[in-house]
Design a protein around this nucleic acid. Structure first.
Lengths: 390, 390
DNA sequence: GGGCATTAGGTAGGCTGCTTAACAAAAACT
DNA sequence: AGTTTTTGTTAAGCAGCCTACCTAATGCCC
C-alpha cells in the first residue's frame, strides 16, 4: 500500500500533469525533502503507478533518474453524444490523445444510443487497453440539463427523448468504469479552458449555436451550473423584439432557440420571397454565399449576429465574462464576429473579448476528456497506491 | 505562542460560531482526541482568546467546564455608505450585534465621506472598545463596482464621484484596522444568506431596486463577481421594449436603471396627464396609493413589476438561481410580488422562489458585518495565538 | 588522467502533532 | 456506600515529516 499521506499525493500530482521529473525536481516542486521524495517514489514504483524513465546526462554532478507516470497507469474515454454524430476519444493519464473515432448517431432513445455508445467504447478499449492499463473513467457529453444526481438528463430533444431519461445506467451496465455525465455546452466551455482559447481565463462563457442555443459559464475556473443545472439556458432570454411567452401558444418558451438556432435561420431564409441566384438549402450554404458577398445572405447572417450579440449582452449584464467563445455549427462561423462584437460593445459596460472556438467540432469531446481525466486523477490521488495498477 | 497547528484552528473555529462548548464536545466536533483538546484549550486560554464559561451540572459523570470566545477577543465594525444615509454597526467576534447608528450622508466626494465615516467608526469604538477588546476589521458597503485591487471603486454616482476613486486609503489613515470593501448589492446578497431568506440557499440572487438597479449573485455559497466586478449590473440588460443604445444618445447605456429605478418611476408618473385625486410626490406615496387601490397607481406599479420580472427572467436564463430576493427602497415593496412572479413564471423553465428581503434597509449593513467578521475570523485562525488579544 | 566542484541519493536521528491506553477525579443514580 | 458515567490527566508511542551528514557518480579543468 503506497502512502495515503499527503506527500504521496503531492508527488503523484506533480507527475500527473508534467513531463518526466527527477527526484530533486520533485523535491523542489512539492517542497518536500529529498529523503521523503525517495521514499515516496520507491513506493509508487513498487505499486506500478510510476516508472523509471531513463537518466539525465550532460550536467555536472551525479546522474539523476527521471520518473514518469507508467504508460499502463490507465486511460480514460470520452464520448460526445450529439444529435448527428457520436464521437469517441481516449487518452492516457497524462492527457495524450491515443484514439479517436466517430460515426453517425442514427439512433434515438437513451437505450439504443447507449448500446451504440457502449460498442464504440468497447472498440476504443480493444484498441488501447493492452498498452494503457485499466480504463479508469468515461466522460459523457450529451445535450440537455443534467440533474443533481449526475445521472438523469432532461430536454435532450436531439436524442429523441422528451422527458427526463437516464443515459448513465444503461452505459454502466455495459462499461467497466464509472461514468461522468455533463451537458455538452458546459463541456465545450471546459474544453476551451483546457485546450482552447480560454486557457488562462478564469471567468468566461461559451456560446454554442447549432440546432439549439446554449451557454456554458465558467467563473473563477469553476463551472456555473445554477440551482437546477439550467444556467446558460439562454434560449429562454427575453430579448428586444421577442414575443411574450403568453402570445407564443404551443411553441414553448425557447424563443431564442427557435429564432437563432438552425431551424430559425432556415425559416428566415424561407420567409424571403425572392433570392438572387441559387437559394441556399442549408445553413452552411447560406454562410458560404454570405462569404462571397451575396447581399441577402449577408443580411440574414447579420440578423443572426445581432441576436447573438443581444444574447451575449444579456450574459454580460448578468455574468460579466472576460471572454466569450462562439461555437457550435452556426456560432463557429467567423462571419458573425464583427456584428456580434458591435452589438455587444454597444450594450456592455465592460465588453468581453469575443472569439470563435479554437476546438471547433471537438470542443465538447475535449471537455468530456477533461472531466474524465480530472475524475480519474482525483481517484488516483485518493487511493494513491492502496490499490495497484491492475 | 499558541499552536499554529491545525488542531488550534479547529478548536477556535468551533468556538467561533457556536455557543459555549465543553472539551469533550470540542473533541467530538473536531475529531481530535481529548488530550489534544485539553492541550489546545490550555494554550488558547493562556493567550486570552477563549475563557472559562462555567460548568455544566445535572448530568451523571464528572462536571465539565464550558469554554467560549473571550468577550475581549475583539470586534468588527460595518459601515453602509448609502446615497442618503450612513449606517454603522458593531458586533463581537461571535457575531452578536452590539452597536448601531445612522445619520444622513449629506456629503459628497470620497474624502468628505471618509471623514464622516471615520468619525462614526470612532464613536462606535468609543462605545464598545473597552468591553470587546481590539477592533479587528471594518467592512464597508458602498455603491459602485469594486476593482480587483479591493480598494478602488467606479461608478458610485450616489456619492458624487464619477470616475474611479479610492475610499479605502483615506479611511485606513483614520481607522486602526484593515478595511474590507465590497459592493452594496453584493453585500445585501451575503447579508440575506447570512441572516435573511437565503440562509440555506446555495445559489440565489438579490435584486436591489432603488435609485438604481443591481443584482448580487451567489453561486454555491460564493459571490459571483464577474471578470470586472460587473456581474449583476442588470441596468445594462437589453430587454423587450428597450431602445438600442445607439438611439439613446447622451443618456448612457443603463436603460433599465433609467426606467425601473426611482427616477424612472417618477418620470412615468409625471408622464401621466391626469391623476385621480392627489398626485403622489414620491415613490413611497405612489406605492401607498396603489395599496389603497388607486387604479393609475396600480398600473404604474404593475409596469414596474413587469420590468423587474423581465430582469429576473434574464437572470434565470443566464444564472438559474433557486431564489431571488427583492430589496432596495422600491424592490422591497410586497405589492410588486404577484406580477413579478407571473412574468418570471412565464419565461423561466425553472422559476425561482421570489421573496422580498428579510433584512430590509439593513441588508447591505448586515452583509458588511458578515465580510468583516469572516475576514477577522480568518485572520484569528491564521495567527491563532502567535499574537495575543491585545 | 587526477583532482575538484557539483549534484544525486541514502542513512541516522530527531521533531511535531497527534494518537491510544490507562488511570484518577467528580458527579448522578440506586 | 457503592456503582455507573463522564471528564480530565498522564505516559507512551506512532506517522510523517525534517535536518545533518555521508557516499556515489558525473562534468570540468588543468
Amino acid at each position: 500500500m503506497v502512502s495515503v499521506e499527503p506527500s504521496g499525493r503531492a508527488v503523484l500530482a506533480a507527475l500527473l500533469d508534467s513531463a518526466p521529473m527527477t527526484r530533486p525536481e520533485l523535491a523542489r516542486r512539492t517542497g518536500l525533502s529529498r529523503p521523503t521524495i525517495s521514499e515516496v517514489v520507491r513506493r509508487l514504483v513498487d505499486s506500478g503507478l510510476i516508472v523509471d524513465a531513463g537518466v539525465r546526462r550532460g550536467r555536472p554532478g551525479r546522474v539523476p533518474t527521471y520518473y514518469r507516470l507508467a504508460p499502463t497507469a490507465g486511460y480514460v474515454v470520452a464520448v460526445d453524444v450529439g444529435g448527428d454524430n457520436l464521437r469517441v476519444a481516449a487518452a492516457d493519464m497524462s492527457g495524450t490523445l491515443c484514439y479517436e473515432q466517430q460515426q453517425p448517431t442514427m439512433a434515438t432513445g437513451a437505450n439504443r444510443v447507449a448500446v451504440k455508445v457502449a460498442r464504440m467504447i468497447a472498440a476504443a478499449t480493444e484498441a488501447v487497453a493492452d498498452r494503457l492499463g485499466p480504463l479508469r473513467r468515461v466522460g459523457v457529453s450529451a445535450p440537455g440539463a443534467v440533474h443533481a444526481d449526475g445521472r438523469t438528463m432532461s430536454a435532450a430533444h436531439n436524442l429523441g427523448e422528451e422527458g427526463p431519461f437516464d443515459l448513465v445506467t444503461p452505459l454502466e451496465a455495459r462499461v467497466d468504469a464509472p461514468i461522468v455525465l455533463e451537458n455538452n455546452v458546459n463541456l465545450a466551455a471546459l474544453g476551451e479552458r483546457w485546450r482552447g482559447h480560454a486557457r488562462d481565463v478564469a471567468t468566461f462563457a461559451f456560446l454554442a449555436v447549432g440546432a439549439g442555443i446554449g451557454m456554458g459559464l465558467v467563473h473563477n475556473g469553476e463551472l456555473v451550473r445554477g440551482a437546477h443545472g439550467a444556467a446558460g439556458e439562454v434560449a429562454y432570454l427575453p430579448l428586444p423584439g421577442s414575443v411574450p411567452p403568453e402570445q407564443r401558444a404551443g411553441r414553448g418558451r425557447e424563443q431564442l432557440a427557435d429564432e437563432a438556432g438552425a431551424y430559425g435561420v432556415l425559416a428566415a431564409l424561407d420567409a424571403r420571397r425572392s433570392w438572387p441566384g441559387k437559394r441556399p438549402s442549408s445553413v452552411e450554404e447560406l454562410f458560404a454565399q454570405a462569404a462571397t458577398g451575396v447581399p441577402a445572405a449577408r443580411e440574414l447572417v447579420e440578423a443572426e449576429a445581432r441576436q447573438l450579440g443581444l444574447t451575449i449582452a444579456s450574459a454580460c449584464a448578468v455574468f460579466d465574462p472576460e471572454l466569450v467563445v462562439l461555437g457550435g455549427g452556426i456560432g463557429r462561423n467567423p462571419l458573425l464576429l464583427p456584428t456580434v462584437r458591435d452589438v455587444v460593445n454597444g450594450y456592455a459596460p465592460f465588453p468581453p473579448r469575443i472569439e470563435t472556438s479554437a476546438l471547433g467540432e471537438a470542443a465538447s469531446l475535449t471537455g468530456a476528456l477533461y472531466i474524465a481525466l480530472r475524475a480519474a486523477r482525483a481517484e488516483l490521488l485518493e487511493v494513491a497506491g492502496s490499490s495497484d495498477v491492475g
